[in-house]
Nucleic acid binder design. Sequence first.
RNA 1: GCGGAAUUGGUGAAGUGGUUAACACGGUAGAUUGUGGCUCUAUUAUGCGUGGGUUCGACUCCCACAUUUCGCCCCA
Length: 417
Amino acid sequence: MIAKPKGTYDLIGLDAKLYNYIYNVVQGYMDNYNYEFIRTPIFEASELFHRGVGETTDIVTKETYDFIDRGERNLTLRPEGTAGVVRSVIENKLYGNQNGPLKYYYFGTMYRYERPQAGRYREFSQMGVEVFNANDPMIDAEVISLGYNLLKELGIEKFTVHLNTLGDLTTRQNYTAALKKYLKPHLAELCPDCQKRYETNPLRIIDCKADKDNDVLKNVPKISDYLTDESKALFTKLKELLTILDIDYEIDERIVRGLDYYDYNVWEYVTDDANISLGGGGRYNNLVKTLDGPDMPAVGFAFGIDRVITELKNILGSQEFTNNVDVYIMSVNDEEKMQALRIAQDLRLNNVMTEINSNNLSLKSQFKMADSLKAKFLVILNSDDLQKGLVNIKDNVTKEEVKIDEGEIVDWILGNI
RNA sequence: GCGGAAUUGGUGAAGUGGUUAACACGGUAGAUUGUGGCUCUAUUAUGCGUGGGUUCGACUCCCACAUUUCGCCCCA
């Protein structure tokens, strides 16, 4: 037997239903906010992610699926959605004649070569939004609230927006310097990972789980004390707008985000009970320029669809999710089966969910099948009645049975359903 | 990349170094029933993740690998 590759999964049963549900809700929802759907390739030039996501991030240094195609091109399965969308905006010059913001959403699979874990796979689905050419905190508020309201719309209630700001370049330079200065005498007290992070990505040290209770980290400098006046004003404005929009948020200075391109506002949608991040995002004002586009600010976020599905399943509990067939048509001999197929088509064309015996089941088995499908009505065919143009319809709840003219089936079902 | 746990039919699962791998659900066939749902009977894994090894003999012991799962790192 050939098994699925490690870290992948088949979307079946309830998971598949929820995936479709989410997809449908998202599509309808994005129209309200006037976001356009964009679909970019699942693989891109490797360089796009190296320059876009960042050479120092784990995602790029050790988690990409890289391959060389028959034309000897270096390609990479996308590990995230933003870089591809940015590339498309630049390549198609979508920014050409726009005054207002460009607003897009995407939905698709991403690939990261990681050790599988709870809510984490090598192939996983994300939906995300990206807004370009907009620098006003109003857009940040719109994007954050869009994600917030979308989760609510999907049926997820218990979560909070964890919000932080990384400020502008000056802020981060000053803060990083202060942080390193503070940590330097305490380096030996930190975990081995943090000692490495001191060189590669010092901001992450404040988010370390191993050193969570370490006294050194309790008195660590706060980024909020190093914000430039401009950064501070923008953040204050954003918080004001979120309050107006009634968004349940809290400031969490430990949120740093792992992708290099973020600046200013960063946030995550975190469940209250399990403390799981369903998604996150931030502003990335320099990414478009980094990828050879114009100097154009942008902001966006992404949800992990798999995590949303997991959360929805927690909420639904053991609630059943089966197809409730409207009509099951029972037939035994060839003549009956032919009629069954034809009647089924008539019903289906009238949007009646119909199932037939296509597997040579005994009459007894067909009754069982109809029950397991939770059929509301049974159409029971028998040759004698068919010759007279009659069919039997049985209400599978009341068990009442009527005999009607074959030509009236559709009307009868539609009238009684 | 590092660490812990797990892997028996369609499903939930018992099980022992030694003939036919419990039990339950589900499936199939039949009896009974005006056309099922209750009840009864029969049947349903030539195999216990894969590959080696130890042994007279392994599903049961050992090793490797794979996959799953829970953590670390990182992230959605």
